[in-house]
Nucleic acid binder design. Structure first.
Length: 579
RNA sequence: GGGCGUGUGGCCUAGUCCGGAUAUGGCACUGGCCUUCUAAGCCAGGGGUCGCGGGUUCGAAUCCCGCCACGUCCGCCA
């Protein structure tokens, strides 16, 4: 699709500057580190000279001045300036504007995407127990996961989004018992007419009975034991119990534009004996020990500290544990991909570490790279499904769309018809949910507050979608879309600032992918929308009479619209043409 | 008790990996801008011991050590 040595303009410019610096300080051993100056007036790219000072026994400013006089002529740099110990490069604006506009207008929806890598990555996310509806705490997982799926695809990887389905644990066993033993008449009418909401009451009631009655507890234990032995009839019962619940959860995920490619049931690794294989292999390692016929790995040597250096992988009764099966799952994943990413709650940190060590002991080289996110709590404390202290994802979806609808009606009620207002409300409401979650880095813990989750002001999704709609409005009215744009007439400071920012999009994708930092896309989007609004204020488009300036400005608007749409796509958020 | 993570104006947040120029932006607050491409917009203003204390460095929000607060984990649970 792209030429092999494809490079975006800004990368090319950075490459040239690195070469230039190397040519004027040939004995510089370290890699050339370039920075972005804090102010546009100080140039586009900066090279700090402080580390050279002890080598040349001169002060940094003198070195910068000296280097400035030696920079040879080249294609990207307009001029250089020595300032405060930095050698600052000012790029040729026309060139960066021209090449960036050309790239965007040619590549359109693939602008920003990186070269194909022919590498497969499995991103495991969500993997929630299918025993009831998703709540907003868990919703952080699919949103981070799906955004990373989109970012990795844009970065050139082949991605398989996987959901690891726990079909043999306590939770689904309780659900299964409940559905088979509790009468429909005992179940209250659910808040939403969805199977996950309908069936969660069976789980809740069964959980209560289990705590009250020994025979219920025994019955549930039997289900667990049978499933761990791979008993087909039991697994079948469990499957028919959780399947509708899972379908309900998937409906909610689809509603917020999340799609999972494969569902991998945990039982698979018991049935195909790979969990047994894991046990047999671990048994042979020098770290394996026995305690009352149960087996564990002693992880002291691997830096695991505290009371728990024993990592049990086989029970006294010879059955495997969740973690053992998880190791088998990762063995399987490692055989099917070049890289593995796992989106996990911070409570899985220890288990993740234990699995990674076990995989190394089994000589697996493709070790999962975990992305941990912190918990979402409510102002009064933790969320708890059983105590009813939860906000469901479905609650959030409903509220968000309703609130968005009120806003559209308030602003455009007299101009737009009902269908259109509902479509816009859907796009804004869903976008708000995804944006407000993804814009903060995963490791910060979140206290859920409605006013923040439904934030529609300032750094929020309507601001960005509105910028996109504004661009669309101009483009619709302009009617003619120029094929070629003359960058010579793109001279206003706001235009140049905007274009230089659009040039950064590919680098932003690259960095977001390399660091698994989905929130940086949200930040980039906000800055793009903000710069577009400044352009909108300073540079009228449709009223321009000179044809080539008119065409150039339409080109700038179109390019911005494309980048906004592409970045929104990375976040799984709709780009409305009108709002 | 131990491990891991987080701590940035009243509230939320970027920057922390890889140390650099007056610490990013939003909410709220004060004032201004709609006969001109959608004001879900723009402009200006006030507001900061970057949790605390040491250290390394020409230079620390960023690195090192100690402490404090919050989250999370430390089951033959998942």
């Amino acid at each position: 699709m792209f030429p092999f040595n494809m490079q975006y303009p800004l990368e090319e410019a950075l490459g040239e500057i690195t070469t230039l610096i190397k040519s004027i300080i040939p004995d510089h051993k370290h890699s050339i580190k370039l920075e972005t100056p804090p102010d546009q007036k100080m140039g586009d790219i900066a090279f700090p000279c402080f580390s050279l000072a002890p080598i040349y026994k001169k002060n940094p400013q003198n070195i910068a001045e000296d280097l400035a006089s030696k920079v040879p002529s080249n294609t990207w740099v307009d001029h250089v300036k020595a300032q405060g110990g930095y050698l600052n490069f000012y790029l040729n604006s026309t060139k960066i504007v021209q090449t960036t506009l050309n790239e965007i207008l040619t590549r359109k929806e693939t602008y920003g995407h990186l070269e194909l890598r022919h590498q497969k990555v499995i991103i495991e996310h969500t993997s929630a127990n299918p025993n009831g509806p998703l709540h907003v705490g868990r919703a952080r997982n699919p949103i981070i996961g799906d955004t990373l799926v989109r970012i990795f695809r844009a970065a050139g990887y082949m991605v398989d989004a996987q959901y690891y389905l726990d079909d043999m644990g306590k939770q689904v066993a309780i659900l299964t018992w409940g559905i088979r033993h509790i009468s429909k008449t005992e179940i209250p009418k659910p808040q939403y007419d969805k199977p996950d909401h309908r069936y969660v009451s069976y789980y809740q009631k069964a959980h209560k009975s289990m705590q009250e009655k020994h025979e219920v507890q025994n019955a549930i234990s039997t289900i667990i034991k049978q499933s761990e032995k791979g008993d087909p009839a039991t697994l079948d019962q469990i499957h028919s119990a959780y399947k509708p619940v899972l379908d309900g959860m998937i409906t909610s995920l689809n509603r917020i534009n999340i799609n999972i490619d494969s569902y991998v049931p945990e039982s698979q690794f018991v049935l195909d004996k790979s969990a047994d294989y894991v046990v047999n292999q671990l048994k042979k390692t020098p770290y394996s020990h026995e305690e009352d016929q149960a087996l564990y790995l002693d992880l002291k040597a691997y830096g695991i500290q505290g009371r728990n250096t024993k990592f049990f992988y086989l029970r006294q009764d010879g059955t495997t544990l969740y973690a053992t099966r998880d190791i088998a799952y990762h063995l399987w994943k490692a055989a099917h991909a070049d890289r593995l990413i796992n989106i996990l709650g911070e409570d899985h940190k220890l288990e993740s570490q234990q699995v990674a060590i076990a995989l190394k002991l089994l000589h697996v080289t493709i070790i999962p790279e975990p992305v941990f996110y912190s918990f979402v709590s409510l102002p009064g404390g933790k969320m708890s499904t059983r105590r009813g202290r939860v906000v469901y994802l479905d609650d959030l979806i409903q509220e968000s769309i309703a609130r968005a609808y009120d806003e559209v009606k308030k602003r455009r009620g007299t101009e737009l018809n009902e269908t259109k207002m509902q479509m816009i409300a859907e796009m804004v409401g869903i976008g708000a949910i995804r944006y407000n979650i993804i814009k903060v880095q995963p490791e910060k813990d979140i206290v859920f507050r409605w006013e923040e989750a439904l934030n529609f002001e300032g750094n929020a999704i309507p601001f960005i979608q509105y910028a996109h709609a504004r661009a669309c409005s101009i483009l619709t009215k302009a009617r003619i879309i120029p094929k070629k744009v003359d960058a010579q007439v793109v001279t206003h400071a706001s235009e140049i600032l905007l274009l230089k920012h659009l040039a950064r999009f590919p680098i932003t994708i690259k960095e977001a992918c390399e660091g698994c930092k989905p929130h940086s896309i949200a930040l980039y989007l906000y800055e793009t929308a903000s710069l577009f609004n400044q352009f909108y204020r300073d540079c009228p488009v449709l009223s321009v009479t000179e044809t080539h300036i008119l065409q150039a400005r339409i080109g700038v608007v179109l390019a911005t619209r494309i980048v906004l749409a592409n970045a929104l796509e990375l976040l799984g958020i709709a780009a409305p043409e009108e709002m």
